[in-house]
Design a protein around this nucleic acid. Structure first.
Lengths: 148, 148
DNA sequence: GTTGACCTTCCTATTGTGGGAAGGTGCAGA
DNA sequence: TCTGCACCTTCCCACAATAGGAAGGTCAAC
């Protein structure tokens, strides 16, 4: 099948399929005589795997590792679990950070009357208070993909 | 004072100060005879405002709006609050998304024994299940800054 | 003078995705 | 057979926000 069909069935855009191929994340697709890429059910299944993994917020580097493990019949589930745990810890740390930000913003929004007057505790706070964070380690800017 | 001093006092790197100036987020600094940028306490206070606002995850576009409001004596607090509320809703939506991802990952990690055997529910899931999301609207990839 | 710590501008990379141009291909209808 | 349209190809650009570094000027202490 053509790339647009594979895109539709896998949920990965044609643009991204070509990109993933170009960076070596997935193997180069077979080509037909006219130069068009040709996909079968196996390839679509792999693209779905990538899609799902991306949806869970794994980076392309992590997707590559997971793909390797997926293809390897003699892998140990330990390694897969370690990857997932690491990613999970990462996500939970980011959630904690964002919740701290959310709490601060809620407090500020409540303190501001939001009318025609210029007095605004939000701006006062922005000009003064240092931010409160809950985690100290460096977070990677990894995030879950947009919900369709 | 020199740019590195202003960076130290504001928490915004010299690199970023120049960048903010280049995109017009902040006004061009005064220059001394040797061409060096020169900063005073007013400028440092403004940089701190930017820093704090970025820490709360506002985009540079939003920072620009907030800066304008901050400088405007006759602003209405309504507008500030509206911006903060919008950003807050955005953050909360992203937290909800990430919590859904976190729950899924936790479930998968628990289901995987993580030993030498190759059987792995994590990979099985990645190959099969569609992702569960809680929000339907498009989320912007905005995020809180790294905790120092 | 020389050294070292500043400063300047300019270019590059990052991550993952989308947009679009320029040109080839395939198929359906007139 | 021609025409049009919907595909396909590669290649380049843009985004957001930041960091790294090169090449060169400046300043202050020794």
């Amino acid at each position: 099948m053509n790339i647009s069909m594979a895109a539709e069935q896998s949920g990965v855009s044609a643009k991204m399929i070509r990109y993933y191929e170009s960076i070596g994340l997935i193997e180069a697709a077979d080509r037909r005589d006219n130069g068009y890429r040709d996909y079968g059910d196996t390839e679509v299944a792999m693209l779905q795997f990538v899609r799902r993994t991306r949806d869970l917020g794994f980076s392309l580097d992590e997707v590559a590792s997971l793909l390797t493990l997926w293809r390897n019949r003699r892998r140990s589930s330990r390694e897969v679990r370690r990857l997932a745990e690491k990613h999970l810890a990462d996500i939970d740390a980011r959630i904690a950070d964002m919740r701290a930000v959310s709490r601060t913003l809620k407090r500020l929004v409540h303190a501001c009357h939001g009318d025609d007057r210029p007095e605004c505790p939000i701006l006062d706070d922005l000009a003064a208070t240092p931010v409160t964070t809950t985690t100290k380690h460096t977070r990677k800017p990894r995030r879950a993909r947009k919900a369709k």
